[in-house]
């Protein structure tokens, strides 16, 4: 393997536990190369632990963590080429956004004048290069705080960005803006590892996804493969309709349907038709045709298993 192709981040058999025998990561082995990698898992899965280990905030109890072939807990020089955006707010909140970024630019090694220029540059990237940058951070909305945190991570144009839940609590405009920013950075050759507990937040621009659950790496691969995992496991679909029995007749003959169940909530005029399918991809193709041909009024369709938690439960069975 040539040097250029070597993975930036290597976790080998890493276990990290916290006080009270809380497991953060459990015999976790993974490596991350270039592009955008999404760390996806429910809350408490170990995503933040992964990023904290990779940024030397904490050290593993067992195992080896290497970033650019260096131990991030022992060798701070690794951070010259790494930007980190923590999940929690980490501000001196009475400071203005500009002051905050400037101080951190100085900590990165910029002189006073250069720090000012760099601050302007990174604030521009996150679209905060206006009068808002001169306001105290305490007055910022959640979205603006997220942007400032991302801005400080961009100081020095690092090759690798580690972003812990960068979309958490952000408004749709901020989410869209941050998403575009990450894509632009990827085009410039920046590698990004970002965590989220929502798959669709990261799948739009992630090249690779790593599914983490209860401190273990459950699955990894390109987005389409991970998405396929979701479609490969049995799905339950809930259809709220005024004629569930009538509608069931149309579904019962479909090969993609494994079972049907009807429930009648007493407080509703509608009934619920539950459909279990082993082949969601085929089922979802057939669904519109069946609904049109049945001419039954449908109030709501919901795929209750089309979420990560269901996939995790399926994969860990």
């Amino acid at each position: 393997m040539s040097k250029e192709e070597a993975p930036f981040v290597i976790f080998y058999n890493v276990t990290k536990w916290y006080k009270g025998n809380v497991i953060g990561l459990n015999q976790f082995t993974a490596q991350v190369s270039g592009g955008i990698t999404g760390l996806v898992g429910p809350n408490g899965a170990g995503k933040s632990t992964f990023l904290k280990l990779a940024t030397g905030q904490i050290k593993p109890n067992i195992g080896i963590v290497r970033v650019f072939n260096k131990d991030p807990f022992r060798d701070s020089s690794v951070f010259n080429d790494l930007g980190y955006c923590p999940e929690q707010d980490a501000f001196w909140s009475w400071m203005t956004g500009k002051e905050f970024v400037e101080i951190l630019a100085k900590a990165k090694g910029y002189s006073k004048e250069e720090a000012k220029k760099e601050t302007t540059r990174v604030l521009k990237i996150v679209s905060l290069d206006d009068e808002r940058a001169d306001r105290p951070i305490i007055t910022y909305s959640k979205g603006m705080r997220q942007r400032i945190k991302v801005a400080q991570a961009l100081i020095g144009s690092p090759s690798l960005l580690l972003l812990d839940e960068p979309f958490a609590g952000a408004d749709p405009i901020t989410r869209a803006h941050l998403g575009r920013t990450f894509e632009d950075l990827r085009k410039e050759g920046v590698s990004i590892i970002l965590s989220s507990h929502v798959l669709h937040e990261v799948e739009q621009f992630a090249d690779q996804i790593k599914l983490i659950y209860r401190g273990r790496l459950l699955a990894e691969g390109p987005v389409r493969d991970i998405r396929a995992l979701i479609y490969d496991h049995p799905h339950r679909i809930k259809i709220l309709t005024d004629s569930p029995r009538e509608l069931a007749k149309y579904f019962v003959s479909l090969p993609s349907v494994k079972s049907l169940e009807i429930t009648d909530p007493s407080n509703l005029h509608y009934g619920i038709l539950w459909i279990l399918t082993h082949n969601p991809a085929v089922f979802y193709k057939e669904l519109p045709k069946v609904l049109v041909s049945s001419k039954v009024h449908v109030e709501e369709i919901m795929s209750v298993d089309d979420n990560l938690q269901a996939v995790f439960e399926y994969l860990t069975q």
Binding site: G34, N80, K106, K108, Y110, S111, G156, R186, K187, S191
Partner: peptide
Amino acid sequence: IYERGYRPWKRQMQPKKMVLLNLIWE
């Protein structure tokens, strides 16, 4: 398909002593 290779960081920064002095002042 975007560039995925690692390009070592070569930015010229202030000497460490200066960085620490700046931080002490801050």
